[in-house]
Simulated assay, not measured.
Amino acid sequence: MGSFSIWHWLIVLVVVIVVFGTKKLSNVGTDASKIVRDFKEGMKDRDEKPVGSQQVADKSSIDVDAKEKSKL
């Protein structure tokens, strides 16, 4: 009683196709595949970098530690 049969899922699929149309559904599939591909590329790039590496700052910037002035 808690699970749906194949007929229930087919009816849901037909309703979704009628409401959204096939063109929008294909666009959603294309967008989802691009997202997955970009995610995989990002994870691959992350894995290729050594663990201890740091990103190099812009050469025109200066890296300093700010310290509070002592009040005398």
Rank of each mutant, 00 (worst) to 15 (best):
M1Q: 10
M1E: 12
G2M: 06
G2W: 08
G2F: 08
G2S: 06
S5L: 12
I6T: 09
I6Y: 07
H8P: 02
H8Y: 08
H8F: 06
W9H: 15
L10G: 01
L10W: 02
L10Y: 00
I11K: 01
I11N: 00
V12C: 09
V12P: 01
V12F: 13
L13C: 15
L13Q: 02
L13T: 15
V14N: 02
V14R: 03
V14E: 03
V15R: 03
V16I: 11
V16S: 03
I17D: 13
I17A: 14
V19H: 09
V19L: 14
F20L: 09
F20Q: 08
F20N: 11
G21L: 06
G21Y: 07
G21E: 08
G21C: 07
G21V: 07
K23W: 10
K23Y: 09
K23D: 11
L25E: 10
L25F: 11
L25V: 13
S26M: 11
S26N: 09
N27H: 04
N27M: 09
V28R: 12
V28Q: 10
V28Y: 12
G29I: 05
T30R: 14
T30K: 15
T30F: 10
D31F: 14
D31V: 12
D31Y: 13
A32C: 04
A32D: 03
A32T: 06
A32R: 09
A32I: 03
A32E: 05
K34L: 13
K34P: 01
K34H: 13
K34R: 11
K34D: 11
R37S: 15
D38F: 14
D38R: 15
D38N: 15
D38L: 14
F39M: 09
K40F: 02
G42H: 00
G42W: 05
G42F: 07
M43R: 02
M43S: 05
M43Y: 08
M43E: 08
M43L: 12
K44F: 12
D45T: 10
D45G: 11
D45P: 03
D45A: 13
D47H: 13
D47R: 15
E48A: 15
K49E: 14
P50A: 14
V51R: 08
G52T: 13
G52F: 14
S53V: 10
S53H: 11
S53P: 07
S53T: 05
S53I: 11
Q54S: 08
Q54R: 10
Q54D: 03
Q54I: 14
Q55L: 00
V56F: 01
V56L: 12
V56G: 03
A57K: 02
A57T: 02
A57V: 01
D58C: 00
K59H: 00
S61T: 10
S61G: 02
S61N: 10
I62Y: 05
D63M: 00
D63P: 00
D63V: 01
V64I: 02
V64W: 04
V64H: 01
D65E: 04
D65T: 10
D65F: 05
A66L: 12
K67G: 03
K67H: 07
K67A: 07
E68H: 02
E68L: 08
E68N: 01
K69N: 05
S70I: 04
S70E: 07
S70F: 05
S70A: 06
K71S: 07
K71I: 07
K71T: 07
K71P: 04
K71L: 06
L72T: 04
